[in-house]
């Protein structure tokens, strides 16, 4: 009895799930599925909490179409969503090359598997780069805004065209001695964050001098547009402004509610980290294919397992795309 047990233990490839594969799937593949289930629950937790904050501030949430309007090499062109749509296609396409690699692996075709793996890696790298560019634009901001004592964001519009104007279009410079404090001056040897391009007084002065500028507040009307104040209301509102906000970070966000920026950084950052890890895993598998590891092993199951992870990353992006950019 003991002999037969140890013999079958030796014979069975434990990592393949032994002689009798549970659920007809190898050990590694089953574990990858379990990981995907738990990771799917993590991501749904994040996305649902995003939805929670959004429904909580349903009448003042930023409009994504106005936030992500950039496209590479098209400066100043209003191109909402085109770039994210492109990113979605890149990721879906790299999913396709991945599944083609898995298919080529089933046919034990080493060179084709390696070729498709290579394309997958390229697609993943382009996607991570695109996400970095998207972050850069979001952090840098576009028009600038001011924040009130209550933490509300006020944005500026031109009265005739109803188009956004940036702070530099109307702010009037006031000569000042104030400069960014650096480590080498002052007694506490601390560096402060770089000052915004204009101080709040300069923005207020410019706003009062220019009658063509109106204020747009965070609240949304019945049609889903941000409410624009009249000139008189705007003049009253500007007095409560205390801070110039340029771009977005974890504390302030020129596009509106800071929670929007927090969730954007956290969820797309977590997803981008998944893509990055996926690219690293793909590179390892790619070199193993080139070295002939799986040729010797007799099967390309590892390609299939890493493929499952890669498709999952694509799947998560489909949801992130919908809930951050479309809805």
């Amino acid at each position: 009895m003991e002999v037969s047990v140890s013999k079958s233990y030796e014979e069975a490839n434990v990592w393949e799930g032994g002689d009798q594969k549970p659920l007809n799937a190898g050990y590694g593949k089953l574990m990858m599925w379990f990981f995907i289930v738990s990771d799917a629950l993590t991501f749904s937790g994040f996305l649902v909490s995003y939805g929670f904050s959004r429904f909580k501030f349903i009448d003042s949430w930023p409009i994504a179409d106005e936030v992500f309007t950039h496209f590479p090499f098209l400066h100043g062109v209003d191109a909402p969503m085109y770039y994210v749509a492109l990113m979605t296609f890149i990721l879906i396409f790299s999913s396709v090359t991945m599944v083609l690699a898995v298919d080529a692996g089933h046919h034990m075709n080493k060179s084709r598997t390696a070729f498709y793996m290579f394309l997958t890696i390229i697609g993943g790298a382009i996607f991570v780069g695109s996400q970095a560019w998207e972050w850069k634009n979001f952090i840098k901001g576009e028009y600038g805004a001011v924040e009130t004592r209550g933490g509300q964001i006020l944005q500026f519009l031109s009265a005739e065209e109803k188009k956004r104007v940036s702070l530099s279009d109307f702010a009037i410079g006031i000569p000042t001695e104030r400069s960014t404090q650096n480590k080498n001056d002052g007694i506490w040897f601390k560096t402060e964050k770089s000052l915004p391009e204009f101080s709040i007084d300069e923005v207020k002065k410019g706003f009062k001098a220019n009658p063509n500028i109106l204020i747009r507040i965070q609240k949304i009307d019945e049609n889903g547009d941000k409410i624009v104040l009249s000139r008189d209301e705007s003049l009253m509102k500007i007095d409560s402004a205390i801070l110039v906000v340029e771009g977005a970070n974890l504390v302030r966000n020129e596009y509106g509610n800071p929670l929007f920026a927090d969730f954007f950084f956290f969820i797309t950052g977590f997803h981008g980290f998944h893509v990055f890890s996926g690219v690293v895993l793909n590179i390892i598998i790619f070199f193993n294919i080139i070295l002939g590891t799986y040729e010797k092993r007799g099967h390309y199951d590892m390609v299939e397992k890493v493929g499952l992870y890669w498709h999952f990353v694509d799947l998560v992006w489909v949801f992130v795309f919908t809930f951050f950019y479309l809805v």
Binding site: W33, V37, L41, S44, V48, S49, F55
Partner: peptide
């Protein structure tokens, strides 16, 4: 895949995620 594998992966997600969505969205509202 076998239907047992399909169900053991899809069912937990199909049950848990709508439950989470329901509770949090109701509270947010």
């Amino acid at each position: 895949e076998k239907s047992s594998l399909k169900n053991s992966i899809v069912l937990p997600l199909v049950i848990l995620i709508p439950y989470l969505v329901f509770i949090l969205f109701l509270e947010a509202d």
